[in-house]
Nucleic acid binder design. Structure first.
Lengths: 230, 230
DNA sequence: CCTCAAGTGTTGACACTGTCTACATCCACA
DNA sequence: TGTGGATGTAGACAGTGTCAACACTTGAGG
């Protein structure tokens, strides 16, 4: 059951003896944690197994992370960074050199969100659903905020372009985020009647389009009201 | 740290001695599990603590649940039943005797979903996000399916009423579910910029209304395509 | 050169967990 | 009057997160 570190290996046959101090353990641990979570999920995630995979003693991680949750928070942080990148990533370049409309980039970011979620469902679980005392890990909140601000930026661009109603971009961003997050979470939980990723993405595109019709600038949002809400 | 059973108590001073066989343990365990999860969440949930709260030995639960996950699955099942009830529950009766329109009932079910989620966030976690081998617990899948079918029924009623486009109700139900689920999950994770429950519900009502505008029957869904919007 | 303090990794312990096996008790029915 | 099955208990085991004590390495200042 013992595994050797894969990231600090010596040439075979050279009478290898790992030095007492690893020298680069923290990122290695983070990497191992990401891998382990992707494999078994945060519920079965174990600090000692991470240590095993890094080839170190079960207590070495405590020199770099105060506790198990801090390592999980680091994983979540890394997830938000990857998510922000995915949201803001430029289109796969097409032949046409006409710039992609902002609305289109906004909608595509929704699909990117879902693609990210489907490719790293356990990661999403740590990022959004794990009971981490987020106030204890400010980097986590900051990374989450950065990811959200990418989304807000896309909304604002679409507003400037005139394809979304003006005013505070926050509610619009929140609505879009909610829809896309819901699709992603339900798809991950296998609660949607779709099998393949492409089916899910097609469904998501339809949902996004439907929502956009409802948010279209011809019908300003603020003017609509239903009866009172208890 | 020892707690006595609260649900099988004898009159004080009557030389109490609990009989060897509890006689009604399974529902008591389920109840205790629901309470414990509401308090500490599924991550910190412990079979032994459930047993302690029920006032029995740490191994007694194994006579009623094959393993920890089976108890969690029972909790999730109970959650889906409560959710189905909440979704289908009739409006709080108003003075007017005119029947509530189906569309209104459909939209209100979305708010009911969110209210349920906010009142039992840890429950929702077990229901949707916990890695339970759902095929091992068929009652869980069945209960989830029943809850979803309530939603589909509401969509169909709104379709008959003419306030939603006809055709397969499933995609419509899935879109609505996704939106509402997303709002609920993000709100629980404190990732939405709202503080009070009423703020969240007001936001949700706006989102639901926006989505409805986009799904309204005057603009059949299938005809719309992304690309340029004139 | 020596020292020595800080940073980093290891060993051993502890309480706690899920789950296994063996045993105790009680009730229904032959 | 057994007696077997259902239900509850006690004890054990490996595995976990975390703490305390110790070991090794390095680099700065004498």
């Amino acid at each position: 059951m013992l595994r050797m570190s894969t990231s600090f290996c010596y040439a075979p046959g050279m009478a290898t003896k790992r030095p007492y101090h690893h020298g680069n353990l923290k990122p290695v641990l983070l990497q191992a944690a990401v891998g382990l979570i992707a494999e078994v999920g945060p519920a079965a995630f174990t600090l000692r197994e991470v240590a095993r995979r890094a080839g170190i003693s079960h207590n070495a991680p405590y020199r770099h992370f105060r506790e198990k949750d801090e390592l999980l928070a680091a994983v979540a942080t890394e997830g938000f960074e990857r998510l922000a990148e995915a949201l803001g990533a430029p289109e796969k370049p097409t032949r046409t050199s006409t710039p992609t409309p902002a609305l289109r980039r906004f909608q595509d970011s929704g699909l990117a969100y879902i693609r990210f979620a489907l490719s790293a469902p356990e990661h999403l679980l740590v990022m959004f659903d794990w009971p981490l005392a987020t106030d204890r890990y400010p980097e986590l909140s900051a990374a989450a905020k950065r990811a959200f601000s990418v989304l807000v930026g896309l909304v604002e661009a679409a507003q400037r372009e005139g394809s979304l109603p003006g005013g505070d971009p926050l509610p619009l961003a929140c609505i879009a985020w909610s829809l896309v997050h819901g699709v992603a979470k339900l798809a991950i939980a296998h609660r949607l009647p779709f099998k393949s990723e492409s089916e899910i993405l097609r469904f998501a595109a339809g949902a996004i389009e439907a929502l956009h019709q409802g948010m279209a600038p011809t019908q300003p949002l603020g003017l609509r009201h239903r009866g009172q809400i208890p």
